[in-house]
């Protein structure tokens, strides 16, 4: 748990530094979606590994599909939205310059 907490902390710190470096604007709901997705991903990983350690044969796969896929979708949405907005803003400014 300590190691997982440290890794999560380092990842969040890295993310914030990266966002500042790239000057990406992240809205509150994108943070929310990201946190939800990340939480669901942790829940999935914990249950998949624990179910496997309990010798369940099908349950780990079911956990992977039921919670893992939504977790990845949420994470993808939370990542894509700021980049998409950033890209559109860039496009718009480029058009303004061209005009």
């Amino acid at each position: 748990m300590f190691l997982a907490g440290m890794l999560v902390g380092m990842a969040v710190l890295g993310l914030v530094i990266y966002l500042n470096y790239k000057q990406l604007d992240v809205r509150w709901y994108e943070w929310l979606i990201g946190v939800l997705g990340f939480g669901l991903l942790l829940f999935t990983l914990q249950n998949v590994t624990a179910a496997a350690s309990e010798y369940w044969e099908v349950a780990p796969l079911v956990f992977l599909w039921v919670f893992g896929v939504p977790a990845l979708i949420l994470l993808a949405v939370s990542v894509i939205l700021p980049f998409f907005r950033h890209w559109r803003r860039k496009q718009a400014s480029r058009k303004e310059i061209q005009a």
């Binding site: 914990q46 249950n47 624990a50 179910a51 350690s53 309990e54 956990f63």
Partner: peptide
């Protein structure tokens, strides 16, 4: 009849 390993 499940262990407590799974947070589920």
């Amino acid at each position: 009849s499940k262990r407590h390993n799974m947070s589920y």
